[in-house]
């Protein structure tokens, strides 16, 4: 690995100062499971690596307050997957966190890192999209909340401003019963990068939210407010037509070696239909409490 300087700010103020002076020569280090791979292969060559794990405001914590669940940016996947509150209210996020790499990766990879890396295949992104998460960003000018659907731009790029850090991710607690699920496609059963990753949420009012990644430059949310997908009585053709429309924006890359665009599109339909079915079953079985 090429050499670089290492900075471990103990406060937000120190971090901002480092980021300000280092500018684009800085890379933030949280879990490191993506960053260190890229430092080694040389695709990133920062002069300063800024380890954000000792900043108190970013610490790994999951807390319920004011109608929302707040997950600290450096909370690791294993903790999210195992957390009772996440599993009760946001099961698709727990399911997604549980398939990010193998256990050694999940013990290091953070939620903040996963979204800031902005990989189109990030497994937590679709779940965060269906749950309407907000990203709490903080910079020297103060903090702001970014709706997750406005967060991703393309691989490696988000709407974070220069010098801003992700402090936490907030999930509004559901106000009505919901059923949700995360599904994905991989090349083997053991841990793998997703060739399609998808989350679905159906609420008691009949609105279906589907979010999907790895089929375009960024993860996308699509909402069916017609009630057709959530309607047990609707026939397969009607549901299929709605799904087609929701998935119309998918634009899988032809250059990927992991799966062809045709296969990704086909699997999006298969996973979409299966996910709606599972989410409805979960809703019918009591679902997540409102």
């Amino acid at each position: 690995m090429r050499s670089f300087a290492y900075s471990r700010p103990a406060t937000l103020a120190q971090a901002f100062k480092t980021l300000e002076s280092g500018g684009s020569d800085c890379r933030l280090l949280a879990g490191g499971t993506d960053l260190i791979i890229r430092l080694r292969d040389g695709s990133l060559q920062p002069t300063i690596v800024v380890d954000v794990k000792r900043i108190p405001e970013l610490r790994p914590v999951i807390r319920e307050e004011a109608g929302r669940l707040t997950i600290g940016a450096t909370t690791v996947m294993s903790e999210i997957a195992a957390d009772e509150r996440v599993r009760r209210h946001f099961v698709a996020l727990a399911e997604a966190a549980a398939v990010v790499g193998a256990v050694q990766i999940r013990n290091r990879a953070t939620l903040g890192g996963n979204i800031c890396n902005a990989s189109p295949a990030a497994d937590t992104a679709p779940a965060l999209l269906v749950y309407g998460a907000q990203v709490v960003a903080i910079g020297s000018a103060g903090s702001r909340r970014i709706p997750i659907r406005d967060f991703f731009v393309r691989s490696g790029e988000t709407t974070l401003r220069r010098g801003e850090l992700v402090m936490a991710i907030e999930l509004p607690l559901p106000t009505q019963r919901t059923g949700s699920v995360h599904l994905r496609r991989t090349r083997r059963r053991g841990h793998d990068l997703a060739s399609v990753t998808l989350a679905c949420l159906v609420d008691a009012a009949g609105v279906t939210r589907l979010a999907f990644g790895s089929v375009g430059p960024r993860p996308v949310l699509a909402v069916d407010s017609s009630g057709v997908l959530a309607d047990d009585a609707a026939d397969d053709d009607a549901k299929g037509a709605v799904l087609e429309e929701l998935f119309a924006t998918a634009s899988p890359s032809a250059g990927s070696m992991r799966a062809s665009p045709e296969y990704r599109r086909a699997m999006l339909r298969v996973l979409g239909r299966r996910a709606v079915g599972i989410a409805l079953d979960r809703l019918a079985g009591g679902g997540a409490p409102g």
């Binding site: 090349r187 083997r188 059963r189 053991g190 070696m257």
Partner: peptide
């Protein structure tokens, strides 16, 4: 991206 079987496979 060169996949070999894991314990789950």
């Amino acid at each position: 991206d060169y996949r070999i079987p894991t314990s789950m496979d």
